[in-house]
Computed example of a mutant assay.
Amino acid sequence: MADQTESSVVIDSQPGDVLGVIADFERYPEWTGAVKEVEVLDRLPDGRAAKVRFILDAGAVRDTYSLDYTWDVEDDGTGELSWKLDQSGVMKAMDGSYRLTPTPAGTQVTYCLAIDLRIPMLGMLRRKAEKTIIDTALQELKKHVES
Rank of each mutant, 00 (worst) to 15 (best):
E37L: 04
T70M: 11
D63M: 08
E26F: 00
R127M: 01
P102T: 11
D17K: 15
G89T: 12
E30L: 07
S82D: 07
V10K: 06
R118S: 01
W31T: 08
V52G: 06
T103C: 03
T132F: 10
K84F: 12
D3F: 09
P102S: 14
M121F: 01
C112N: 13
K92D: 13
C112H: 10
F54W: 14
W83I: 09
Y65V: 08
T64H: 10
V109W: 01
Y65N: 10
K84D: 15
D24M: 10
A34M: 04
D3N: 09
L117W: 01
D24I: 09
W31R: 06
V90A: 13
T103V: 10
D95N: 11
I55N: 03
Y111V: 00
L125R: 03
Q87C: 06
E39V: 10
V73I: 11
G16N: 11
A93Y: 07
L19F: 14
D63G: 05
T132M: 13
P45C: 05
K128E: 14
A49I: 02
A114Q: 10
G77K: 09
A129E: 00
L19R: 13
R118G: 06
A60K: 13
L85P: 12
S88C: 10
V18K: 05
R27C: 00
Y69Q: 13
D3E: 09
V18P: 01
D57Y: 10
K51Y: 04
M91T: 08
E30I: 05
W31G: 05
I11Q: 05
D17V: 15
L125G: 02
